[in-house]
Amino acid sequence: MNCLIVDDNLIARTVLKQMVSMDPDLDLIGECENAVEAYRMVLANPIDVLFLDVEMPGMSGIELVQSLEGRRPMIIFTTGTTDYAAVAFDLNVVDFLIKPIVPARFLQAIEKARELYRNKNITVGNKEDEFIFIRDSSIVRRLKVSDILYLEAKGDYVKINVPNQVYNIHSSLKSVEQKLSPNVFLRVHRSFIVNVSKIDTVEGGTLIINNMMVPVSDAFRAALNKRMQIL
């Protein structure tokens, strides 16, 4: 996630830079000492997370957020007072950190941003077209839902298996599942979701899909049997 630090205090910016360096998912694009400079940076660069001080000379952090509108990245407010908590809630920011910021609280805010970022990596098309868009590295791809064989969770990634190809997206399996049609896909294991129409055979605790084996856990077996309407 590309991030930008905005704070008129040099020490505060230095502390945040040290914390940003703790997380390998964060790529610091730059730092700004005022909101006007930050506004130009956001318009000129792909910023995902904005660490934004609220009280700054000239344009405040709140005014910056309001001015960004459709170009707004995820916002994490950093401030020395709780006075702006209600405003932050109204602006739907990711988190609200009180200075002095401790590492544990910083990482907690980043985890919230990370989950939101993962959710951006898969977008559902309309029901008539039956397709989804996925972000595969730096490329956005259009996939037909009917081509998807199964999905597998691997750490912080989900592997989308289609015939003769596997795509990796940075997301959680739960997030992807929420965006797929339950009429087409079914979770059969903690780490696997399958396209039911692609199942070739079932033997014991294993599905065969396109000559590939997919495990079925006991917790999902009853739902699978019901869905397959076995004669």
Rank of each mutant, 00 (worst) to 15 (best):
I169T: 09
L64E: 02
G155N: 09
E37G: 05
K127F: 10
G70K: 13
K226Y: 12
S21E: 14
L64Y: 03
L180H: 04
S21F: 13
S138D: 14
D7Y: 04
P182N: 09
I132A: 02
V196M: 13
N9F: 14
T82C: 08
S137T: 10
A153K: 03
M19W: 12
N34L: 02
M41S: 09
Y39W: 14
R135S: 07
S191R: 13
D95Y: 03
I134R: 01
E33I: 15
R187S: 03
R118F: 15
E33C: 14
C3L: 09
A12E: 01
N2V: 08
I29V: 15
V188P: 02
V94M: 00
E130T: 10
A12C: 08
E33F: 15
E130H: 15
K17G: 10
D27Y: 09
S181H: 08
V184A: 10
N164M: 10
V42L: 14
N126K: 08
S217G: 09
I62K: 00
V140I: 13
Q229D: 07
D53I: 01
D23C: 11
H189N: 08
V6F: 04
Y117G: 07
K198T: 02
L224F: 05
E31S: 04
G61P: 03
V214L: 07
M212A: 09
K226F: 14
S138W: 15
V93N: 00
A88G: 15
L26Y: 08
S197C: 05
P100C: 14
I208F: 12
Q18P: 03
A12G: 04
R190M: 15
L91H: 02
I76W: 04
N195Y: 04
G205H: 03
I98G: 01
V102P: 05
M74Y: 09
L50Q: 04
I29P: 01
K120F: 10
V140A: 11
V184Y: 09
K127E: 06
F96P: 00
I148K: 03
P182E: 11
F51K: 01
T82P: 06
N92F: 06
R190P: 06
F220P: 02
P182L: 08
Q165I: 10
A85R: 05
K159N: 14
S60Y: 06
I230E: 09
D7L: 02
I199T: 07
S181Y: 07
Q108G: 07
V216A: 08
A222T: 11
I29F: 15
D218N: 07
F185R: 02
G61K: 02
N126R: 10
K154P: 00
S146W: 10
L52Y: 04
I110N: 00
N45Q: 11
S60F: 05
D136N: 12
K226D: 08
K144Y: 13
Y84E: 01
L149Y: 04
L186R: 01
T79M: 05
S138A: 15
I47L: 05
R71H: 11
V196T: 13
P73R: 00
A153C: 12
E128M: 13
N34A: 05
